[in-house]
Nucleic acid binder design. Structure first.
Lengths: 209, 209, 209, 209
DNA sequence: AATGAATGAGTCTTCATTCAT
DNA sequence: GATGAATGAAGACTCATTCAT
């Protein structure tokens, strides 16, 4: 799918607003204003608000998958280090695309059917498959324990990052980090989240419990 | 605050719908129809849709806090067992109040200010404090390691449960559990989630990593 | 018509609010709150908002007519002095019952039919008749000129007072009388209005023009 | 401010209805129907009912001021004739714009603040200033008496015309003019009002009283 | 291709009134 | 008799979308 410059403008405005205010909380007028385009252009280009959402989703998730896949394939490392690299990638990616991630979290809650739900499911499956491969590889090599509940480990991986993303302002407030510049704060929580998840994965994958 | 039977009816309808379709995606007409009351009753009792949300929140979170507190205080057990009991409670509670939990997840993303945000923050603080006490107690007794990052452990606790709740239908689908009756399925994931989280906590709190 | 204490309370609240915000701009809830009575009592006592208006009107205009009539009949003076006394009475009355007068001004504009319109018309006719008698008496005695356009003189009498009442705050502002206590200000404009109208009537009734 | 044809249509419908039924008594649906436009157009063009009122006011009062000013400046006549010309203009103008005038009368009673009140006050001030100039000119030339209470003379000028406008149907009824065609009736009362006011002004400005 | 104008359906809220007690 | 609860109708306004140009 090729998108014109204006279409990208619109989709990016939509992404930001959908993330901040939800799909229903965002009006096409909002989007048009934020994108700096004429109101009628949105229907004109995308047909409807719903279709805009779908297009934006396709646009973003294309963008998404590739990065991860190439990353994994290129590295040839011991299983644990691979897992750790993958965690870093995950954290990095979700943190970088916070807006999009928020939209996914929302959409998962609402829509069990429809094209977007399908896309999310597809993404999930692919990513889960990837991790599964990595863990199986580690188990074959004897580095990882047997009997790992991979789906629930994924729940923790994504759930923890989601939680960090959606409640970062509470974390900031509670820890008195109001005045820290946002880029620094982002770096901080990214580092901490990565570290935290790595300890969990290491513990679960390698130690007896 | 005392609520009449009708008010509770309305609040429960609102909770269900807000959870399913979001605040903006739910019309007061929806709520009125679902609750089986006249449309105007909602404004009559609560003043506005927003105020209804706030009242529902207060109603539910009252309900929330007490259960946890009394539970913790009453048990006199070794720290790890206490933690495990708390995880069970947490999982149980969030799973039981899935609707309410979904609303919280949503609201956290949108609203950093306003009365609801305040209530959530308050809830979070209290619960976090409780866990902190438990962990400190374990550390004092020598059962738990030092240097635990409690806030991030909380992120994992809540984040994992949230993830399970919001993506349960994917889990169901992927694992081919379409035909399992919902109560059974709920029991299943509750058990698995509890088990999973306990392994993580045990590993993080007691083992060297 | 006999009115209970509560009914009077309601009618007086209604009068004040109708004068200030108009009939349509005033809700029965406003009236109930201002009167300190239960909302349902208004419909209960008066049947409807409209009927409340009518009752209030009847209540007030009863009050109105009598004062004027007795005043006029009792005085035995030269015609010009009678006219002057009448002007004083008129000014005094309208100024004292500003709220009611405002309502009349409004209602005249809106409703050409209906019971209230009838009442106003009746009031007007009676008062006009009175003045007519006075002027005819003066003409017969040779004190007043012939060919007076009585209806238009009435227009000036009432119109001027109305204008003073409805624009008093402009007058106050323009003349820098913000800080004068209201009772003093009322006295001032009452005096000035009376004086002004008397000059006009004297000029029109007695001088060649 | 430039208004499109449709905007003018709406404003004129609004003017008529506001005059007849008051601001609160007129619904935007009424206005839309009367103007023959879609209901949503009103919000589309003006934002709100209130803003429509303000725009209509600005539109009409622009229209208003100029006529008077140019009229006065262009004539080079003895003071009394100027005053008489001004009275004619005033009567003519207010009679022609009866709807707008009614709205002003109403608004003065309700709203002491807000943008409309400001506009009225401005109009009043300008017109009053004009008359003041004229009278001062006449006094300087020795044609008019000293000690004229100009504000109250204005009250009589505007108040009388207002009274004629708002009670014209009573006048008609009382004088048995039901069957006279309205244009004729309007001409009649315009002539009578002008004549009446001129006598008053002449008497007050030039005779000893 | 791009847009200002327009609209029907829908939003939340308030209204005056009535009912059951 | 007096009133809290309840309601249908109507209020102003916003929405996503379409149309004529």
């Amino acid at each position: 799918m090729e998108f014109s410059e204006k279409q990208v403008q619109i989709m990016e405005a939509a992404e930001k607003l959908f993330a901040a205010k939800g799909f229903d909380g965002t009006s096409v007028r909002d989007i048009a204003d934020t994108a700096g385009v004429n109101l009628a252009m949105i229907s004109y280009y995308f047909g409807s608000k719903e279709k805009l959402m779908e297009n934006m989703f396709a646009y973003r998730s294309d963008f998404f998958k590739l990065q991860l896949e190439t990353m994994i394939r290129n590295k040839e490392l011991p299983p644990l280090q691979k897992i750790e690299a993958l965690i870093d990638q995950y954290v990095d990616r979700l943190m970088k695309e916070q807006c999009f991630h928020r939209i996914i979290v929302r959409e998962q809650m609402v829509n069990y059917t429809g094209p977007i739900s399908g896309m999310i499911q597809e993404l999930k499956k692919q990513n889960q498959e990837l991790i599964k491969q990595l863990i199986l590889e580690g188990q074959k090599k004897g580095d990882f324990k047997k009997g790992i509940d991979i789906p629930f480990l994924m729940m923790t991986l994504i759930g923890t990052i989601s939680q960090v993303i959606t409640t970062q302002h509470y974390y900031r407030e509670i820890n008195g980090l109001h005045s820290m510049p946002d880029p620094d704060f982002q770096k901080l929580i990214k580092k901490k989240t990565g570290h935290h998840l790595k300890s969990i994965f290491k513990a679960i994958l390698t130690h007896e419990v």
